[in-house]
Write a protein that binds this DNA or RNA. Structure first.
Lengths: 151, 151
DNA sequence: CAAATTGTTCAAATTTTCTTGAACTCCACG
DNA sequence: CGTGGAGTTCAAGAAAATTTGAACAATTTG
């Protein structure tokens, strides 16, 4: 059962370009009624402490996982965040937006290169760069709308 | 210049989980005023014929590339499709929808496993599977809306 | 129809990405 | 302070994905 759920998340995270271990960790937390510590993840998934640590880091950064305080235990306990809207928003914020932002710089770099290109292709290239800029602007405005469509 | 444009597309396709060569091919076609043949791609990008063939296959399947007839030449010529809406729609249709569809089967499999699970965890697992089903339904309805937001 | 040209396929090689594990940092506790 | 537990980091190894290239199929041409 648990394994089948984990499998679902492994496929899902691979789809969005994150490592398998991230899917395993999230899948196990999602299947677990109680918050789990790093070392239960290590034991129950048979992954290394390093993987678990790095996987949790990613999951924390996108807000897919929430630290839970447990009295009398020094270790961090984690629970899966299950609000789809939060997950998507976090993924967009941490993984997608940064790329769009670096795209802005790239576009201005392209425009500067345009100045020093053969006049022959210049008109065509210029039109293609406008097209790129248009795509970029559209993406920037649409991405944030996405979270609104959920939940 | 061309190289810089190609670079943009290489990053973009890697983001959506397609191989670099697909980005190179699309980037070159996008930068080219004339449609290109498979062997010009091979020569200009220094990639193998196999890569070019497979890359074009993917690009054709998502509709990112359009065959162009050229009189007196037996070879296929390809031009980049530059309508963002078409590209996104094609990607969703070919790469994303199939996954959501297989998700439907997976969910019913999970429900069948639920029957044979320990009654103790049953209530919790059942709620989590409902959550998954809810996500699934939401995704199915939202994905197609996406293309509407573009163009 | 034989030869040449175009494109595809797929196993092996390469490259890229992920995982591991050992060394390290940081605290809490005695 | 010094010891031990918890978590992080990162270089090296393992695994996965991509690319290559050679064999093949299909089609056109002389």
């Amino acid at each position: 059962m648990e394994t089948a759920v984990i499998d679902v998340f492994v496929s899902a995270v691979k789809l969005i370009g994150l490592p398998k271990s991230v899917g395993e960790i999230y899948g196990l937390l999602f299947s677990s009624p109680l918050p789990l510590t790093l070392d239960s993840l290590v034991r129950r998934l048979s992954i290394s402490k390093g993987s678990a640590s790095q996987g949790l880091k990613v999951l924390r950064s996108v807000g897919a996982v929430r630290p839970v305080y447990v009295a009398g235990d020094r270790r961090d306990h984690y629970a899966a965040e299950t609000e789809l809207k939060k997950l998507v928003a976090g993924f967009i914020r941490e993984e997608l937006q940064p790329r769009l932002d670096s795209g802005t710089e790239r576009l201005s770099h392209l425009n500067s290169l345009l100045a020093s290109s053969h006049p022959a292709d210049s008109a065509f290239l210029s039109s293609r760069i406008s097209k790129l800029a248009q795509w970029h602007a559209r993406s920037k405005s649409v991405l944030p709308l996405l979270t609104g469509l959920l939940d």
